[in-house]
């Protein structure tokens, strides 16, 4: 009995499944637009970042200011665009930090097994038990609101989960017979890792990267909201939201638009992540 299906590769298969998922594709589109806008901000922003119009003050959305202005007469759209540069940069960079450490740590720990694994995972367990939110607040207050520290702090929290997930996957794959077959063939460890282990954990890594970015963006905006993250004159979504909250009774649009932008981004990333999870699910590949 030959129930073979003809499809070129697992990745193409996954892409086909993903492209059928309308929400995930919508998320991907929104993200693409969002990132392009952030990259092009200096050229497309309607006003200069520092432009103030104190006489104008806060105005609701209008033809000249699509999203209105704040109490200093600054254009809200411009602020959100510049804020997106910071928020997205933090999101992507801190995730990259977390990803690098997490994947390396997880792969080595999972593949080495035995005592190395025990020590490495014990470390992660101990770090996990630390109250990080509290630590980050402490760190930010004491050492000033410093972008570098912010990256480090967020990266330090997020890599733990990544390491755990990657290790779990590697452990599972290590027990697979095709890895044992590679060992029996006498292939060098590095080749087994690179050719046999990593390609098979890649799916999971991609999924969790997509889901880590919104977490990081949330964490940054949480800190900015408390007044501990990004500080003026720089802007970020969290900062804009916290200003918006202060004046929400008089100028609700100052809360509404930054919050909507943040939520829309988080939506897109989460839907994309969920879509990827379904598309790359190895169990779905055999149906």
């Amino acid at each position: 009995m030959d129930n073979a299906r003809s499809s070129p590769s697992l990745w193409k298969d996954a892409w086909r499944r993903l492209s059928r998922n309308r929400l995930a594709m919508l998320g991907l589109c929104v993200l693409t637009v969002m990132v392009s806008l952030a990259l092009l901000t200096p050229w497309i922003a309607p006003y200069s970042y520092s432009a103030q119009d104190l006489d104008l003050g806060a105005t609701p959305p209008s033809g000249a200011h699509w999203l209105g202005t704040d109490a200093f007469g600054r254009d809200l759209l411009t602020l959100i665009l510049y804020g997106s540069r910071v928020s997205l940069a933090v999101g992507f960079l801190a995730t990259a930090v977390a990803l690098t450490i997490g994947v390396l740590w997880g792969t080595v720990s999972g593949y080495a097994g035995g005592r190395t694994d025990a020590v490495m995972m014990r470390t992660v367990d101990i770090l996990y038990a630390l109250p990080f939110t509290i630590f980050i607040i402490l760190l930010m207050v004491i050492f000033g609101r410093n972008m570098f520290l912010l990256f480090m702090a967020i990266g330090a929290v997020e890599w733990l989960t990544m390491a755990r997930i990657v290790r779990g996957q590697v452990l599972g794959i290590r027990r697979q017979e095709y890895i044992e077959a590679a060992i029996v063939m006498g292939l060098p460890r590095s080749r087994i890792m690179y050719r046999h282990v990593l390609p098979n954990v890649l799916g999971v890594i991609i999924i969790y990267t997509t889901l880590t970015i919104p977490n990081v963006i949330l964490l940054e905006s949480f800190l900015s909201f408390l007044g501990l993250g990004i500080q003026p004159p720089q802007s970020s979504w969290g900062l804009l939201i916290s200003y918006g909250v202060e004046t929400m009774e008089e100028y609700p649009w100052l809360l509404f638009f930054p919050a909507a932008t943040l939520s829309l981004t988080l939506f897109s990333l989460n839907f994309l992540g969920d879509g990827l999870r379904d598309a790359l699910d190895p169990r779905a590949a055999t149906d």
């Binding site: 905006s221 969290g238 939201i241 909250v245 919050a259 943040l262 939520s263 989460n270």
Partner: peptide
């Protein structure tokens, strides 16, 4: 649920207050 995850408490709280 997705809305809940994408609306952090510092956005949801003020919105509810408002």
């Amino acid at each position: 649920a997705m809305i809940g995850i994408c609306l952090p408490s510092y956005v949801l709280g003020p919105l509810l207050v408002l």
